[in-house]
Design a protein around this nucleic acid. Sequence first.
DNA 1: ACAAAAGTGTTGACTTTACACCCATGG
DNA 2: CCATGGGTGTAAAGTCAACACTTTTGT
Lengths: 215, 215
Amino acid sequence: MQVNNPLYKNQGIHLIINIFTVEKGITKVLLIKRSNEPYKDYWALPGGALYNNEDLENGLKRELKEKTGIENIRLNLVNVYGKINRSPVFRMVAISYIGVIDSNRVNILKETLKTSNADWFNINNIPNLAYDHNEILNDALETLKEKIFETDILKNLFNKEFTLPELQKVYETILNKTFDRRNFRKKLINDGVIEDTNKVINFEGKKPAKLYKFK
Amino acid sequence: MQVNNPLYKNQGIHLIINIFTVEKGITKVLLIKRSNEPYKDYWALPGGALYNNEDLENGLKRELKEKTGIENIRLNLVNVYGKINRSPVFRMVAISYIGVIDSNRVNILKETLKTSNADWFNINNIPNLAYDHNEILNDALETLKEKIFETDILKNLFNKEFTLPELQKVYETILNKTFDRRNFRKKLINDGVIEDTNKVINFEGKKPAKLYKFK
DNA sequence: ACAAAAGTGTTGACTTTACACCCATGG
DNA sequence: CCATGGGTGTAAAGTCAACACTTTTGT
């Protein structure tokens, strides 16, 4: 390989991570506020440049932890973004991933070396983001909807046991439609993605709900 | 961005293209023989390094044309490969794509600046390939099977009109299973992916077959 | 007793699968 | 007239969608 060919120089890889959560019927995405140029003080999807001395998977984990504090989360590839000028400083190809997490069980770093803030944003109220992150986020949302029934992408949202109405509300929030309780339960059990734990949980003044877990 | 950070230097992007065809009941993939180090004289999937002055889509087209002569083909993303040492010379992240084409309607370049040969290989008889291309090819084959009914990835195989038995044989070859003629026709028409052209074609000594085209 | 939310089964519509015979052509 | 492969419909099984009443708990 012609390593000295100038055409091969000065390019890098952006790892971009779309972290979603669902809270009280609202789908939210985790954004960080950049404290450096380019796009200083813009909100952006967490992520950053892959180092040349780390595997891609490790770079993903490192970037996510550095920018947000999140660890141990399942990520799925979404797409690749390769427009030559998508980054104003340096030629960067972006690789975009999705993850879903329970916002109540993580501590998001509000400030890091390269970020001055971090927060969950309602996906219907997203500001102008750095780079092409609005486009990346839109694609990620579509992919989330497509994959929600066929992958275990939701497992990180429920690493404990959960009730069926809880799970159903998450599906309904993300897909923005409602399901019949009976049919939903039948489908999930029939597809073999969840199983009964033979435990129940009591809420105040309501009939106890069965607890399920992912297989 | 810290453009001078040595961690951002010396990495590049491999564009890897899995071109499949189906001939007489055999699924084949297009391989090229490398004439340069590393992996000189190894067979490999066509592709190469993205230039820093071209969009990713253009790099894909350029690499495919340079190494094989193929143009105007629909490609679908498969996966990304980012192990740090997957290339022995330079740190390269690979992005892998799938395309399907009619081998009878293209002229494959047997020799190019960086290749000394090119040929279609039965997917059940693949040699040891350069880099991690065996793994990439296996993933691409799986994705091909998954996507064959949901995308228009086969359109390049039939840019003319075709008969239903022809189309069915392609599906059967790729998926390595057989379908009922009546059900296959019903499904494809019902799904709205093909339409009748109201023409027929005669083969020797057989009942004429209807011609269809993709919508 | 009542309000709130959870659990549960059946029917009709639709989709998918299985299956066999006749037809047009060239030799 | 025969060999080859193409075209076609129906019934059974399985999947998906619609729908309402009863149960448990806390107040």
